[in-house]
Design a protein around this nucleic acid. Structure first.
Lengths: 327, 327
DNA sequence: CTGTTTTACTAAAACGTTTTAGTCATAGGA
DNA sequence: TCCTATGACTAAAACGTTTTAGTAAAACAG
């Protein structure tokens, strides 16, 4: 597969490389109509695709940004990526999607990879473990925004759900439905990820403030769920359950399904993150949807400001409210 | 943000550009230990990242492949991408993910984009509308494989589910459970996508062969579902339902949820594609899982053979069996 | 001590573009 | 008529690497 270069096009159309380049870049100012046609024809005939590498070795911008997704199997993450892709598309940018899998090493690898590929900017859902790297990027004024998570000492704009408010909304909702004891189900987190920490902390704070002594926090859905939660379920009709995210919800529903427990109408449930499943699952449960649209558009805009105006990234935490959907 | 180049590293470590390049490429054969250390130090201090553009302008390979996903919101597509990413990772390749959204124009844009970015090969779930482009790529011996779909006249290896067998398995299963009438629910398809066509055709063939005159094919879940299916549901206990994919399943469950119909135990259902939801939904229904692992590994291997051995793509349809999961 | 080999390093060409600074006709203006 | 402007094009430098073909010194063989 020998590649077609600008030289081939030049030879074929009988003009110089420079003229072909002018044509390709739409600078027709001083170009005879005939020449234009000849080049056009040659490009078509040879099916010429400009070499992006060569082009962007000269140019400043690659018109490409990268997103490093925490976990591509997470519905919130894909939906967000999907939205950002739309914005890129509308503005003539390409989006490279990388899946860090919540693995700091993989994340680091992808960051360096994308920088080396000269992306104009980076949107990251950080694992929070590579702070040295983030700081270095911020110092070098590399265009960068964070989504969903942040670190207090890294000066990068953040766009995220107002986790405390979301949990408060959930808690209030459950209380208004008559819940008397509360259970919070999260997922195992070796990493101190913002959403998990903020949500759990807020839950504990509220439980304490309301003097709801009978509350429970389940951190690891992998093995503990089955043992720990079962008695409570069997014993009471007045438990309010908060499911910290997609994974907690699925783990919980799996537990329900496997244990054969009938939760119909007996417990009130609010899940943070809005899986499509929520629209069809019986019994119905409430969810708190993430403000995906706002996060995506603001993160994109802010990144573009950095890319185009060369403003430097500075810490700025933008929180958006989740919306409770009571089904 | 001025970028650090190999020249800066050379100046800082007091050696020539060539020597730095040798170091970077791990050719230490004829290099003094001291020089090595100095360069290493300079690279570290400057946080130097080689410019991928420049590097791959010289090199043949970019060690990058692209995947063009039909629809990133489709569970099957993401899972497959996830697997392929693992293979890339293991072999030192990077994966660029693009979402064509089942839009032929977007697909074309991304294909050209990725070729222009000099990817070494491309994995595509084709929209089937860009056959001219596919053919041109195949002719130019551009390393290429298809997943999930194919066109008879395009000479590119394909890796996909054996759709006919999958539908037959589903049909047989429903029959064995006592279904007497059959309903197939697909999704609207302006495009003639392989899975949709093959599955529907097979259903019709089986219905005819078995002389099951009371069968129904619903193509468009958007508006027809509500009107068309309701009577049947209300009227009979012996309907067997085949849901053509993720989207059909969700549309159907939405319908069930909104209409308030109780399907508990009354109908037998098999859904093709295995959404995580299937593990938790009540009542239980059977699914046919796609052979994701096999498709991913074989597609990757075949692409790599083309990339590395310069073998040319030739049509070769590899079909893998789905597995019925009866819950 | 001379001639060859090995070691450690470097200058310069090349990759495929874009861009700058031209060249050379031709056309207008005086 | 000569001078300047403009129109149509091009040669060559530059981008940041890798690689080839070298050079010069040190080590070795005879």
């Amino acid at each position: 597969m020998k590649k077609v270069t600008i030289k081939d096009v030049a030879t074929r159309s009988g003009v110089s490389i420079s003229t072909v380049s002018q044509y390709l870049n739409g600078r027709y100012n001083y170009m005879a109509e005939e020449t234009k046609e000849q080049v056009k024809e040659a490009v078509r005939e040879l099916n010429y695709q400009p070499n992006f590498m060569a082009r962007n070795l000269k140019n400043r911008s690659t018109k490409t940004i990268g997103i490093i997704v925490s976990n591509i199997l997470h519905h919130f993450a894909v939906s967000l990526t999907r939205k950002i892709e739309d914005y890129c598309d509308m503005n003539g940018y390409s989006l490279i999607i990388c899946n860090a899998d919540d693995d700091p090493d993989k994340e680091q690898k992808y960051i360096n990879n994308l920088i080396s590929k000269q992306v104009d900017g980076l949107i990251i859902m950080p694992t929070t473990e590579n702070d040295e790297l983030y700081k270095r990027m911020a110092n070098q004024r590399f265009p960068l925004v964070f989504i969903d998570r942040y670190m207090a000492d890294v000066d990068v704009p953040v766009f995220k759900l107002n986790n405390s408010e979301a949990v408060k909304t959930a808690y209030d909702f459950l209380q208004s439905r008559g819940a008397e004891r509360f259970c919070y189900i999260g997922v195992a987190d070796q990493l101190q990820l913002t959403p998990r920490v903020e949500r759990r902390d807020q839950f504990l704070k509220l439980a304490e403030k309301n003097n709801h002594l009978e509350h429970q926090v389940i951190k690891d859905t992998n093995n503990l769920l089955t043992e720990r939660i079962s008695q409570e379920f069997v014993d009471t009709d007045k438990t309010g359950i908060i499911l910290a995210n997609d994974f907690a919800l699925m783990a919980f529903l799996n537990y329900v399904s496997e244990s054969g427990i009938n939760i119909r109408g007996r417990h009130h449930i609010v899940a943070i993150d809005n899986l499509p499943l929520a629209d069809v699952y019986q019994p119905r449960f409430a969810t708190i949807t993430q403000p995906i649209e706002e996060i995506a558009s603001n993160a994109y805009e802010t990144l573009m400001q950095q890319v185009e105006n060369q403003t430097e990234p500075r810490q700025m935490i933008s929180e958006y409210e989740g919306a409770l959907i009571d089904r």
